[in-house]
Amino acid sequence: MKIKYLLLIATICVAISSCKILSPKEYRSLVAQRDSLSTRTGNLEEELSRLQNDTSRLHRKIADLNSQIADLRSNNSTLNSNLDATASKANQLAADLRKREARLKEVEEILKKRDEATNALKNKLQQALLGFQANGLTVDIRNGKVYVSLTDKLLFPSGSIVIDDKGKEALKQLAAVLNKEPDINMAVEGHTDDKKVKNLGQIKDNWDLSVLRATSVTRYLTEVEMIDPHRLTATGKGEFQPIDASNTDEARTKNRRIEIVLTPKLDELYNLITK
């Protein structure tokens, strides 16, 4: 409105200063010009107000966008940090996996060698003891170990702990193979059936019988066949690890036995495990 009044005053001043009496036509022309200027001025004022509002709105939007950009940069920094940490962890896990795979390969190679050695030993023993297999001697592999099982009738007279000649011959053949295999440890295990021991003098029960028979075999192998005693252990299992749990005479015959358990030395494997 101020602009309108100023234009009107300017128009009047121009008319007065000219000291010229206007004709009605000229007057109407001046008034028309004034009205046109007033209209255009009003439009400009409206446009100015609209532009001011738009400018304020755009400033607010730009501020919001700048805030969003700052948040995104902060989130991106956090994401990059997390990404770097995750990548570092993944690289560490990959390195650990490579080490474990290499270690696994070493262990597998050693176990493969052990199994090959165990199978070769089994074959040697089967050939050396072929003549005794009909009399209750068996050779088999269990859990990476060679088991030479000899029934009590092959080694001892009934109820005795003294090895007979037939038993000594079998042990001699066995020792001939084992003396050539210095990397094999041996455990001599005595086993009985579940019948109670009666009238055997110093032998009080099946524990005694199993232990004394195991030590008799161990003594013969070390003192007569000259196997290094550091390689042997003797244990008695009594009646508590039967081959056949049936309550029959045939099962009891199987259960009365000496088992010589042959284990390859696993120093190389032990060293790997304890690294």
Rank of each mutant, 00 (worst) to 15 (best):
V217A: 00
H191C: 10
W207K: 15
F240L: 09
D54E: 15
G238L: 09
P242C: 06
I161Y: 00
L130I: 10
N82K: 15
D84R: 09
S81T: 13
T248C: 07
D164G: 14
S56C: 06
A85F: 09
D84N: 15
N119T: 14
F132I: 04
N91K: 15
L44C: 11
N123F: 06
A63E: 10
N43V: 14
I21D: 02
H230F: 07
A63K: 08
E239R: 06
L22H: 09
S38C: 11
L171V: 06
Y270N: 12
N123I: 00
N123V: 02
A94N: 14
L266I: 06
L154Q: 05
T248P: 10
L221S: 06
G190P: 08
Q33F: 07
P182W: 06
A87W: 13
G201S: 10
K61F: 03
A128F: 05
S88F: 10
S17T: 10
I203A: 01
R114P: 00
L37G: 10
S74V: 08
I184F: 05
D205A: 05
T215I: 01
Q126W: 10
Y5I: 12
T151N: 07
L171D: 04
S29Y: 11
T263S: 12
N247P: 01
S38W: 03
T222M: 07
K168L: 03
A175R: 11
Q33E: 15
A102D: 13
D140N: 14
M186W: 03
R73V: 14
P182N: 08
R73W: 07
Y270R: 12
I16K: 04
Y220I: 05
G167T: 05
N206Q: 11
T248V: 01
M186F: 08
G190N: 03
P229Q: 01
L51N: 11
L7C: 05
T86L: 11
A102F: 05
I163S: 02
E189M: 05
R98A: 15
L97V: 09
K172M: 07
K112C: 02
L232H: 07
K124V: 07
D96T: 12
D249G: 01
D84I: 04
P24R: 09
T215P: 02
L200K: 15
Q127H: 12
Q202R: 14
L72C: 11
R213A: 07
L272H: 11
V217R: 06
F240I: 05
V197Y: 06
K275S: 13
N76Y: 11
M1P: 02
